[in-house]
């Protein structure tokens, strides 16, 4: 399958702080790709690199077949980019911003833009600077959809949005990608929202350690096992089998990619008593925290 984004051996640092070292991943065409990671792991930095706003220390990034630091105007016209914080030209009004952007994109769909913006029930001469974050997100989303891009890059679309606006955003996004020809690369702090949207996920950790997999594989392969906390649980630690652990109240939980039988045997080898060991169903958010830790 053709890849719309290819990252090879990407290394980036801010001063002495290493953000990624030898990061490799690909985003296949037609996928809805979720980039997940805690604050400060470099999600926005990665998007800046992909869009050519930041030059990495080393490595190769290609977007739609072109070097990311030198994207041609044609390639940029095929990419819809949502900047963190729903960045927009705030000095423009609803109508002015549509008029401005429509001149740049040959397949501009004016109706899609006004379909979303009309929900705001604001006059078209209303300035963007006088809008709430949620209202601005509608305008920005409308502009991206009207552009009809092949690749949509959404940097933390959920920032500052209440549940209603987030739901509306996701509904439009689901509608947009349903024919399977569009690719979406999305980051969000609201991991739960992505559960019903993405089909590929990549977990980014500090220093760039990652796991890239399909959402289905991750949700079926990654498991949480819970048992009663006891004296022996104090010696629990992470290793090749136990990816993470959480001891809260009367319960101890371990997270692993292996089956309950293998994890149980491993815990027994470690001398851990596992009375009442059971697998606990997880949401994507539970699994995300299970993989990356609470803080």
């Amino acid at each position: 399958m053709e890849n719309v984004i290819e990252v090879e051996n990407l290394t980036h640092c801010y001063g002495k702080r290493v953000i990624y070292e030898d990061l490799n991943f690909t985003v296949p065409r037609g996928s809805i790709f979720g980039l997940l990671g805690k604050n400060g792991v470099g999600k926005t930095t990665l998007i800046k690199i992909l869009m050519g706003f930041l030059r990495p220390v080393s490595g190769r990034c290609r977007v739609l077949g072109e070097a990311s630091h030198n994207l041609s105007p044609v390639a940029r016209s095929r990419i819809g980019l949502l900047f963190e914080g729903h960045l927009a030209y705030e000095f423009m009004s609803i109508a002015q911003i549509e008029k401005f952007y429509s001149a740049h994109y040959p397949t501009w769909n004016r109706d899609l833009y006004y379909g979303l913006v009309d929900r705001l029930d604001l006059p078209y001469d209303h300035k963007i600077k006088n809008m709430s974050c949620g209202q601005r997100s509608q305008v920005v989303l409308g502009l991206i959809f009207a552009q009809n891009p092949e690749l949509m890059i959404l940097d933390d679309y959920s920032m500052g949005l209440d549940a209603g606006y987030r739901r509306l955003f996701l509904e439009y996004l689901s509608e947009y990608v349903k024919d399977g020809t569009k690719t979406v690369f999305v980051t969000s702090h609201i991991v739960q929202d992505l559960e019903n949207l993405v089909n590929e996920v990549m977990f980014l950790d500090r220093g760039g350690e990652i796991l890239q997999t399909s959402l289905d594989e991750f949700m079926t392969g990654f498991k949480q096992f819970r048992f009663k906390r006891n004296g022996s649980t104090n010696t629990l630690h992470r290793d090749d089998v136990i990816r993470n652990l959480d001891i809260t109240g009367d319960n101890a939980s371990v997270f692993s990619f292996l089956s309950m039988a293998k994890v149980g045997a491993h815990l027994a080898e470690m001398g851990i008593e596992t009375a009442g060991l059971e697998q606990v169903p997880m949401t994507l958010e539970d699994a995300f925290i299970g993989l990356t830790g609470k803080y």
């Binding site: 044609v74 940029r76 016209s77 960045l87 030209y89 000095f91």
Partner: peptide
């Protein structure tokens, strides 16, 4: 000033223009 506040200049740089 409006372009540089909040790095909005990136919006212009993403336009399909050289």
């Amino acid at each position: 000033t409006p372009e540089m506040i909040g790095h909005r200049f990136r919006l212009s740089l993403h336009l399909p223009v050289r």
